[in-house]
Design a protein around this nucleic acid. Structure first.
Ligand SMILES: [Mn+2]
Ligand SMILES: [Mn+2]
Ligand SMILES: [Mn+2]
Ligand SMILES: [Mn+2]
Lengths: 217, 217
DNA sequence: AATAAATGTTAGATTAATCTAACATTTTAA
DNA sequence: TTAAAATGTTAGATTAATCTAACATTTATT
């Protein structure tokens, strides 16, 4: 366990490493809202601690140690989010911010009890998988809504962004995890998608939205 | 809301201010495990922020603003402790440490929901009063066990220390909040007290212990 | 009242995390 | 294949929170 700041870097690097391509200093700087030299200096520190491997001008790669640490933080974050929704009855759009704080609480007893209380859940309120105590993740096979075929009926399994602004948008469209929807039309021009929602109403979703909604057949 | 460090100073100053006498720099330094100059420098900062009033070589006094802030942190701490015991089924001896972290979580929604879930409780697992949303505290009229008369039958209403070492000690003696006990004998020499516990067994408690157990008649 | 002990303050250094300005390397595009 | 743009690094400054060493004040004890 490093400092709160170190934990945030590790978690962010891990999340970026899941996307295709190298993890770059500028990408990290953007995500963490800090300047480039701040990242360079922190990366060096994390490199000394063997959380990442790094050589100047090369990308940033996580070590096994770093991945383990990242998964532990992500586990805490997602357990916290589900707890906030299931036990404290908060909305899925407001829990991420609180989980950003709770993920840094250092107590295995605390998180294992929450896990137990929730019945050892496999996914958080946004459909993202919750790593188990050993950092093992069970990932589902699903695709972004942007890639679903016109005419297909699919189930929303996850959203890959859990910030309030995005989720408030989905709330306003009446979309939830688990909803069965049908792809009506895909616009070539801007990548937007029209769907038929649970209540048989047609709704238009922009490209930025449909690439963040994951569905299964 | 200041930094985590500032919050810890404010809470500690407030707790010390409830004991008789001035709050001194050395007392604070001891409680926070920092050196004297560290305290002097932080007090100056808190003084600029109007959380305490301070003049060199005089004691430290809290302002109304500071008290309000302290009570908010203490409310969060005690709600967290009760939540950990009641909902997560942790022991009263292990919750203080976790609450030291949770008390810094910044979310009214989070704490108000916990308050609600617990039924707007009046006391934490150690019998200490929980300030309400407005910082109002309902304190009970009780006395330290060290001052109870020989022969009197009293009920344990609170303990004024919630660290593991102390509570493990009480656990080993089988003592809990709410227990009815009888004062059998008080030793003039060392201030120790013999009591008859709930299960009619006689137990000897040292002065350091009986001054931290509060009872009502 | 003088001295010693305890307590508190000031000065200056250190560490973590950040910044800006200047410089270096890599990538993209004439 | 050079010039420009983008990306990354180094150097040096800043702020928060801490420390040690030296000095000042207050309190206690002869
Ligand atoms: Mn989240
Ligand atoms: Mn989530
Ligand atoms: Mn406590
Ligand atoms: Mn308590």
């Amino acid at each position: 366990m490093g400092s709160l700041t170190e934990e945030n870097y590790i978690k962010t690097i891990y999340n970026l490493s899941l996307e295709p391509g190298e993890v770059s200093v500028s990408e990290l700087a953007k995500k963490l809202s800090v300047k480039l030299p701040t990242v360079t200096s922190m990366i060096k520190k994390l490199s000394v601690k063997k959380m990442v491997s790094y050589a100047p001008y090369q990308g940033i790669k996580m070590t096994e140690k770093g991945k383990k640490e990242a998964l532990s933080i992500i586990r805490k974050h997602r357990l916290a989010e589900l707890f906030l929704v299931k036990i404290l009855k908060l909305g899925w759009e407001e829990v991420h911010e609180i989980a950003e704080q709770l993920e840094h609480v250092n107590s295995d007893r605390f998180y294992n009890r929450i896990d137990e209380l929730l019945g050892f859940p496999k996914a958080d309120p946004h459909g993202e998988p919750i790593p188990d105590v050993n950092g093992k993740v069970v990932s589902q096979k699903s695709i972004p809504l942007s890639q679903a075929n016109v005419g297909s009926s699919v189930k929303i399994s996850a959203v890959t962004n859990d910030e309030k602004l995005f989720l408030d948008h989905l709330n306003s469209k009446g979309l939830q995890i688990g909803d069965q929807i049908t792809v009506k039309k895909k616009e070539e021009f801007d990548g937007s998608v029209s769907i038929i929602n649970k209540s048989r109403k047609e709704t238009m979703l922009s490209h930025q939205v449909v690439e963040k909604i994951w569905v299964e057949l």
